[in-house]
Design a protein around this nucleic acid. Structure first.
Lengths: 261, 261
DNA sequence: AAGTGGTCTAGACCACTTT
DNA sequence: AAGTGGTCTAGACCACTTG
């Protein structure tokens, strides 16, 4: 009796009713991931507007023919991305702001290329050197043991953007100058099967020395942005230590942070 | 028959065997969280060393009297934190490096206090002002509408560290000068029931103007670290827009990044 | 009181890695 | 072939929020 009233509200009360969601059980893509992608696409296209309620998880699981844990896993992944908010006793909502891309381990080359800046790289040095105490500590190798020093000058539109100095454990990667000139270090690492997993970065500022100013086409004493970074692979082993100098007039770091739950 | 050989290996082959794990079902703390905390503590104290295998999830769930999904949820939370690595067909290992704290939405006050720097704050301005186009866009309010301007000078050991300029939507928070002098803005927000959830930051550098140099006890033209940040609450509404200036000689940003899976 | 998300269980089958 | 994590199910009960 009470049930007969149900279908009338179904699909009308919640924003999700307007969407045609469906999963493909023959696909190798996990069901929860398929659902997450469809929800994300709907948010991206504005079919789910900020503040919209998703409708409860049980109904959604019945409608899709999935179990509730599977639906929850999909929703959780979007909550982790900052696209959805859950409130107990209330429901799941699309967040109000256009907060999108969370922080990623960024590659300067990729960032510039994505911005349509057509970066070029000049390899200044590429040779084995003995590890200084600082480098040895960062890479977890013995002092004075051999590491690879890579020094590069990056330009866009012919103008210098950054002076990049990197140290790598020996034997990790084939560092071909020709390839370095046309791609980024992180891209070469990924291509070599290395999975970058985490990094520790320190960002600061200081005035340019005469030599640095000459390289970067700045005035001596100009404000430069500095970054030191140690990157680790998925087992936590250091794969790279770098000291970078950026022209503050041409570059700034852009971060999207999510508070961890 | 084959079972009799089991107990001999149990607790010996895996590093987990050395730990006395147990959950309290009477506690209001979720079981998966209790387990995650105990594992994290074991890693922190070195009882689980980098590279150690945790042993398979089924054994662990039997030993703790939990279901496998619950054990998985605990392990997953530590994987998300970057403390553990899973490999299909291999097992779950403690990460090799000492990678710890992931990135958080940091508060300068809390950071300085945690570093034992005993920060103090001088409130320079605290008054309603009409929103500039830049501020209006960041906070999602109408141009020229009223917002709160908060300008503070932060010192440690009597020396200036940063000049903080913040804009807040009206009516969001009671900004008492006396409290501002003894705590941080984010702490006041949390105390007022605001849940900070995400932020967008831009970090750059530039040379100090004469006025800024005077405030910060630097030379004119000294390199300063700049940050602009818009912070959002858990529904995605902007709650704060700030423009900060840091003395590069006394402050740098430290980030721990995890590549999102 | 009703509805929501939060947590938990006891299984099942699959994909991948190693032996 | 054996062992591991990856995915998925069909329930259950609890805690919180709202009317």
């Amino acid at each position: 009796m009470a049930r007969t009233g149900g279908p009338a509200r179904e699909g009308a009360a919640t924003a999700l009713g307007r969407l045609d969601l469906a999963v493909d059980r023959g696909s190798p893509v996990p069901l929860y991931h398929q659902l997450a992608q469809q929800l994300e696409a709907a948010i991206e296209r504005g079919r789910l507007a900020p503040g919209d309620l998703l409708g409860n998880e049980v109904d959604l699981s019945v409608r899709l023919g999935l179990s509730r844990p599977t639906v929850r896993q999909a929703i959780q992944s979007l909550v982790d991305k900052g696209l959805l908010v859950r409130r107990r006793g209330v429901g799941t909502q699309v967040v109000h702001s256009k907060v999108r891309r969370p922080l990623k381990l960024s590659s300067l080359y990729d960032d510039l290329e994505a911005a349509g800046q057509a970066p070029t790289t000049e390899v200044v040095r590429n040779e084995p050197v003995p590890a200084s105490p600082e480098v040895a500590a960062a890479l977890g190798v013995a002092e004075h043991s051999e590491v690879i020093l890579l020094e590069r000058l990056r330009r866009t539109h012919g103008q210098p953007v950054a002076l990049l100095c990197n140290y790598l454990p020996p034997g990790l990667l084939e560092l071909d100058d020709a390839r370095l000139a046309t791609t980024g270090l992180y891209r070469m690492m990924r291509a070599a099967g290395l999975t970058l997993h985490s990094a520790r970065q320190t960002v600061g500022a200081r005035s340019a020395t005469a030599a640095e100013a000459a390289r970067l086409d700045e005035q001596e004493g100009a404000a430069l942005l500095t970054m030191q970074r140690t990157a680790y692979d998925d087992t936590g082993r250091p794969v790279e230590y770098g000291t970078h100098l950026y022209r503050a007039s041409r570059y700034a770091f852009d971060f999207q942070l999510l508070v961890r739950g």
